[in-house]
Design a protein around this nucleic acid. Sequence first.
DNA 1: CCAATTTTGTACTGACCGATACACAACCAA
DNA 2: TTGGTTGTGTATCGGTCAGTACAAAATTGG
Lengths: 193, 193
Amino acid sequence: MARPREFDETAAVESAMHAFWARGYEATSTQDLCEATGLGRSSVYNTFTSKKALFQRTLTHYSAQGLAGRKAVLEGPGTAADRLAAMFDGLIDDELEHDRRGCLVVNTLAELGIPDDEVGEALRRDTEQQLALLGECVREGVLDRSLRDGRTPADVAEFLLSTISGLRVMSRRGASPDAMHAVADLALSAVTA
Amino acid sequence: MARPREFDETAAVESAMHAFWARGYEATSTQDLCEATGLGRSSVYNTFTSKKALFQRTLTHYSAQGLAGRKAVLEGPGTAADRLAAMFDGLIDDELEHDRRGCLVVNTLAELGIPDDEVGEALRRDTEQQLALLGECVREGVLDRSLRDGRTPADVAEFLLSTISGLRVMSRRGASPDAMHAVADLALSAVTA
DNA sequence: CCAATTTTGTACTGACCGATACACAACCAA
DNA sequence: TTGGTTGTGTATCGGTCAGTACAAAATTGG
């Protein structure tokens, strides 16, 4: 047909994701994105149309990646309570490994809220899927008797997601791992049987 | 001595605060700040030195205001558990009244992390004071037997502050008041006797 | 080898960024 | 009234912003 790409599109999205993740949407310039991806301006705009469109791509990429990892933990072995504990441990480890950048979705929600465009849609979709995943785990926990009954799974899922967000913000302000583990433990104590 | 100011400095800080609060630090331009405060560029720079310095002023102003309000609730009447419940109710009402802008401190933490300057110092100071206030309330709750014993007040304070941050993010993504109340209630159930 | 098609590099666009220079207006002390 | 001092308005600074124009380069099917 014509001249082929000289780069891997997914790898470029991944690189752009790290740039946005580290600096936030507004503070990341198109120049930053070129340097992060190694692409020229032409290639960036030819492939991704605009800064916002590329950001939306990175968001959905981040979301899919994060959901897959979380799903692997929440559908793993052990009781639902065990799996939730593992999820929190994983989150804290992740923060320590990734320089306390927080969660791209949480950071974006705080910076932009839910904008009335595709970015907002991506944020909403991620939230819905997180809640669905957590809600399913809660339902399983009621059955395996590791989680308390009495609240709707949806409410407990909201509580867990809120705790996740709280931990992400906590990490962002540099709280100690011990403090974060204590918070996760206290949150778990509210839902375990 | 010389020509007097034609504006109230505190009122200008308050206006700038709302601009930063609504749009975030990076997305708020000096032009926005001039329009929000009603001042000319000269007056802004003559009075506040730089955009960042003005932002730091708005942060400390916001923090002092928020801490005063929270202190009034947490040192009010009733058991410690009652006061914590009132705090959460107040937070949710506040979010609904203020167009789900979240908390300026939480939004800034998510957007900037803890920068190595006076802004970072202001963020740290606010966190410390929030934790101190919450910790004191927890200590009182152990004494009046409305709160569970067994965790250190510092850990419980971290949990409560994390829940507050979580609720702020939750509000930012447009969660329903019912869902937020359910989260606050579940968090309270983890700490009440 | 040649057209057709797409990617790439370079240069550039107008707009806006944060910040400043400077003249002038407005006040106070004397 | 005058001199000193400070606030204000206007015009502007160099730099960077997101985005584009366009020609050269690289590939395919014919």
